[in-house]
Amino acid sequence: MQPINRTKIEFESKSANEAFARLVAAAFAAQLDPTLEELADLKTAVSEAVTNAIIHGYEQKPGVVKMELVLYPDSIEVTIEDQGVGIEDIEKATIPTYTSKPELERTGMGFTIMQTFMDSLDVQSAMGEGTKITMKKVFHKK
């Protein structure tokens, strides 16, 4: 299926931009007229991915987070990328309730929420190079 629209933004790894990123994703997806529940799913997954980039990727230090949104006739593909520390063990990081930062009251639920609320999730990461998360949400699924 050919994309029908595309946008790309980048922003500083500041926690205030978590709300900005999920609102941009929801506003762009609105072109496909998703249901409120589908939009809530998308916003939550984007919020988790951006929060991960800020807390884990950049360890709350300055950095740049990139978000690309590609619309297809029936779905949106979201790519969120950081050039932070990378994930040592992706399998471990995606285990529900596993967190490397319990002291920050992280729950280890981020990847579980992304997997549950989106239709696909792909995580690419290299130590010292960064992490790229690609996820897709299909709208109006029968």
Binding site: A40, T44, E48, L104, E105, R106, T107, M109, I113
Partner: peptide
């Protein structure tokens, strides 16, 4: 009006 896993962390804490 919106909550992600950070809210869960807040509640559990």
């Amino acid at each position: 009006t919106f909550m992600d896993s950070s809210g869960i962390g807040l509640i559990a804490g």
